[in-house]
Write a protein that binds this DNA or RNA. Structure first.
Lengths: 182, 182
DNA sequence: GTCTATATAGCGATAGAC
DNA sequence: GTCTATCGCTATATAGAC
């Protein structure tokens, strides 16, 4: 794989970051260029349009998703517990790129909607063999969706923090889901 | 209560509709005016700014939420089952206004984020007495969030429909949640 | 490979006629 | 109460110098 230019990666990092922290509307070419330390023209040399910028995010999503599928399949605590636990945002590369993609999706970017739908199907495929039935699978997926949704709801510096279980409360939730679903 | 002008309600209906079906970015003053059958100037007579338009949505949310609190408290199948079941979008006034509000929230509109956080607290208060413990409450709320999220993910006409349980699958899910949480 | 300058279009909002 | 016309701003994208 040929090494991509550093500036290109910096631009993509900045785009992802602004999507996650400030929302889709704030991720203008100017804001991204400034955060990446280049000019608008410089940015557009690497990504000829905003659409290409979004495609860069979807490439990252695919890359991180592949890594996660391996990790989930080999997790010591089992795929289901791993899946629920990693649905709480921990600022790792997969979480960041998923939230960035869901911002694009909610901004009306169809390829992002399809990509999210696709990774959800792949998670379902990884979990199905480890749960009792379809209702159990639905339960696990929906709890995960709920966790992501709450984390993704607050794009702007609103001061409102999502009330999602962490620490001991998360452990208790995982135990409850495992008891119900497996 | 004084009867509000009909045109005003039509404008608010159009705003809500475009938010739900096409996303926040598509809900421009021009698009809303056109859908409501008035001019931009005519719209701005009733709502002096886009902020007032958003405030109109939040007023509707409060109104519909109050009605739902009563229905949930008196539901024959119990508050928990009622809550989960009504989390699947059925195109009723509450569902529409919640999705519209979540579009505004994800567009960075702070009052909408706070409003959603507020109604989630009120649901929690209504459900807490009917579930076993905190983990059970978290489970119920997160499944509901997950259902809403999946329904709300598709703003644009993408052709991708969310794979959320309905019919018999929804009944099975509700039974599973009830067994785990109560 | 990165810059400045600019073209083009669409947004929210105002002004004033009717 | 509703309209048309227009202002000021910001967005994406292009052109061409360096």
């Amino acid at each position: 794989m040929p090494r991509p230019p550093l500036a290109r990666e910096r631009v993509l990092d900045a785009f992802e970051d602004i999507l996650v922290h400030d929302g889709e509307r704030a991720a203008t070419l100017e804001a991204v260029a400034k955060a990446a330390g280049v000019s608008k023209g410089g940015l557009l040399y690497h990504f000829a349009s905003k659409e290409e910028l979004a495609a860069g995010i979807l490439d990252r999503l695919e890359e991180q998703m592949r890594l996660d599928e391996e990790r989930m399949a080999t997790a010591p605590e089992g795929p289901v517990a791993y899946f629920i636990r990693t649905s709480v945002m921990t600022d790792d590369p997969l979480d960041r790129v998923i939230v960035a993609t869901s911002r694009l999706a909610q901004g009306g970017h169809s390829p992002s909607v399809e990509a999210l739908s696709g990774i959800r199907k792949r998670w379902a495929a990884g979990i199905r063999p480890h749960v009792r039935d379809q209702a159990a699978l639905d339960l696990v997926l929906l709890v995960s969706d709920g966790l992501y949704f709450n984390n993704a709801l607050t794009p702007v510096t609103t001061g409102v923090s999502a009330t999602v279980p962490t620490g001991a409360a998360l452990d208790a939730l995982i135990e409850l889901v495992l008891r119900a679903a497996t």
